[in-house]
Design a binder for these strands. Structure first.
Lengths: 99, 99
DNA sequence: GCAAAAGTTTCACTAACGGACAACATTCAC
DNA sequence: GTGAATGTTGTCCGTTAGTGAAACTTTTGC
């Protein structure tokens, strides 16, 4: 495990993604493209300061699967994506259609 | 086809969903839940004044499948949802994660 | 440089699901 | 009521999302 002068998760997140409550810190969005979902999850995971293994455990899957999703090797099912976001990232998934 | 005093599609859409450019007319969003995606597509389709069959044809699928999606009998694949939104509804799909 | 942690890739496997097709039901205009 | 248009439902099948474990590579701390 990497050691640094940062001791709390909050410090980590604030340093890398700004203070809590800012859009930059709390919100991640993308126009949908297959190959961007991986990046979305990847970023969200880092913002939460989690390793793939930790995320996997919270969701009830394996780190190898998380890796494949982040690298867009497997397409995620919407229901699985929801599990990852809600259980793993403790966030909320939102869907928007612009006509 | 139902006949009425409305003669153009634009009139239909304006009457039922407001003027172009308004949020009410152009935007549909939902916190992700399985059973809400159907309603989202259903609403978007009506806003566009399309039948299930017309939508299906534009996307390259069948009306029976569209029906099942709208009624939440089948979960849509993300890639298929994208096709429906972009090809069928001529809209744009957006995905957001709230942490 | 070394070791440990984190991430990637491969392989084998299969239950579950997406999506097609055709038949059926409903709604609507007249 | 009747017929045409629209929407729903049952059945079926090929594809694939997801598992699990192991081997491998990259990154990191010291």
């Amino acid at each position: 495990m990497k050691k640094s002068n940062i001791t709390t998760l909050e410090q980590f997140k604030e340093k890398n993604y700004g203070k809590r409550g800012t859009k930059q810190r709390d919100e991640l969005e993308t126009g949908y493209e297959n190959f961007k979902i991986g990046a979305l999850i990847h970023e969200a995971r880092l913002k939460k300061g989690l390793t793939q293994e930790q995320l996997a455990e919270k969701v009830g899957t394996t780190k190898s699967y998380i890796s494949k999703i982040e690298n867009n090797i497997k397409e995620v099912r919407l229901s699985t994506l929801q599990k990852i976001v809600e259980l793993g990232l403790e966030g909320h998934l939102q869907l928007k259609i612009q006509l």
